[in-house]
Design a protein around this nucleic acid. Structure first.
Lengths: 290, 290
DNA sequence: ATAAGTTGTTTCATTTTCGAAATTTTGTTG
DNA sequence: CAACAAAATTTCGAAAATGAAACAACTTAT
């Protein structure tokens, strides 16, 4: 009889149990992680059909996750939707009490997250993302709070491949003012991994409202957001460490940028070479490679 | 009987089949993706033990992947190992001409870099690094150019664990002026992965000159730098993509921050909880995780 | 060359997983 | 409040997965 842990979020339960799941359970987990809203409006039967498993498996699945029944899980999910996030660190810290974290376990979890993140990307979505990044007249890269480093990093790579990349937020400039220059032919690369602030959603809504295309990189806990994004790419973030990880997201950026350069082709290559030349002329880099 | 597709790389086969794998098969897949070299030097029996499955499962696993036997897979992997090792350092742009990059190859290379990076860390160096980060009165996080996102990211995590973290460079403030407040009891976390500019070295020299301790995260190409750092942690950066990767560096930061929090212990925990509470009070985060 | 030891594969009984159908629960309508 | 309908859960037998042990192929040591 599994304990019914009131305080753990639905998606978290799935991710925590994911490693040990059987095949059918994994299919269900994938469906629910892909579209966390499903549990709210879909019946267990519909869910079963979508995952390609029997109703019996679905019923068992929710008991495995520690809910007494599907109904209970549904009810719990509805409550979670309203109440805000609970203490994230407290429970995890307990695990470590007076230990130092094991590097090999850290490694294993990072690798698993990366494998599952990249493995689950639909190649048509990736293609679409690359096209959007390539075709946008201007390309806005958006990342607030925790996502700012990701955005910054993405911008640093993208600017090597194509011109007209703008970072949001930029310094202390007012976002709204900067934002007035959106056009329908622009593209967005938006990072909403883990922490998302209200302003982030506002920005994306405006972007979509203006007719821009949006590539949205997020985690598996966020709700599906067609009103906010043209393509959504989800990353695994659940980590054994104290903090969640954005390593898979970073790796995805790497891939997208490489793919973009190749998609753009000759002009990207020229640009890369030009940048090298400028660096050489300025002689601004330390060359202490051995 | 599955066909024996000569031309598909070993890791690629695993990824192709990953979705449909049974539990035990997935355990094996995870082990092999984390350490693809295992197939070369490990026996099937050892592999079984590492994955926690029976020898029978391992034998079946390789047949599932389309190899006639384990031996055959091993032989095939050896051939691939030689041929793929050579093209590694060729002109990267040529490699891609008119192709789109393969996600599974990208994944493989990222995983490889991460595994090698984390495995090669000496645990005494890591311990020393954590101590330095914990004991510094102020903690300066340094990262110019490409390293700025890394520094920014590290700061974002560290500030959750301990106070008095300063980022360099910060906005457009003059580094020198900010820097006047170094003291011998301060600590530095410096990122010099890939691109390093002269100012970076100047900062570190001043830091060491002032008697501060410096944790230096860099790549494998930089020269050994005792005059610049107290502890040096090296990361693999060579990637199959168009750009070098800082994924391993990011993962290392993750580990260090977790380790630091646990090392600091109770006060870090209190700090984390306090941050949670403040977020809750301000209600500034979107809670769309259902 | 033969015995002893490994290593990989196969067999077979056991356990786990799974779906169809029966059963129960829940909700709705006359 | 029946009577029905739909949804969720449980039952139960079939199929899949798995590990222990037998077996076969190879190496090594004597």
């Amino acid at each position: 009889m599994p304990t019914f842990d009131q305080d753990r979020l639905f998606s978290q339960r799935i991710l925590d149990a994911y490693n040990e799941m059987s095949r059918g359970e994994r299919y269900l987990a994938d469906v629910l992680l892909e579209n966390p809203l499903a549990i709210l409006d879909q019946t267990a039967t519909q869910l079963s059909e979508r995952a390609g498993v029997s109703k019996a498996t679905t019923a068992r699945f929710f008991r495995l996750l520690g809910y007494p029944s599907y109904k209970a899980a549904q009810a719990q999910a509805r409550v979670e939707g309203i109440s805000s996030g609970q203490s994230q660190y407290g429970s995890r810290m307990q695990t470590f009490k007076s230990h130092k974290p094991d590097l090999s376990i850290h490694l294993q979890s990072e690798v698993q997250n990366m494998v599952r993140t990249l493995e689950q990307q639909r190649s048509d979505h990736l293609d679409q993302a690359v096209q959007i990044l390539a075709r946008g007249e201007k390309l806005w890269v958006v990342g607030f709070a925790d996502n700012y480093p990701l955005a910054h990093f993405a911008r640093a790579q993208l600017i090597r491949v194509r011109p007209d990349i703008r970072l949001i937020p930029l310094g202390s400039f007012s976002v709204a003012e900067e934002f007035a220059s959106i056009s329908a032919s622009d593209a967005f690369l938006a990072f909403g991994v883990l922490k998302r602030i209200p302003q982030f959603r506002n920005v994306l809504r405006s972007a979509i409202g203006a007719g821009s295309k949006v590539v949205y990189v997020t985690d598996q806990m966020s709700r599906t957001a067609e009103d906010i994004a043209t393509v959504t790419l989800r990353c695994r973030t659940r980590s054994t460490g104290l903090f969640d990880t954005v390593v898979p997201a970073l790796s995805l950026i790497n891939y997208l940028c490489s793919a973009l350069a190749i998609y753009i082709g000759e002009s990207a290559m020229e640009r890369l070479n030009m940048i090298d030349e400028i660096h050489a002329e300025w002689d601004d880099l330390l060359s202490d490679h051995i």
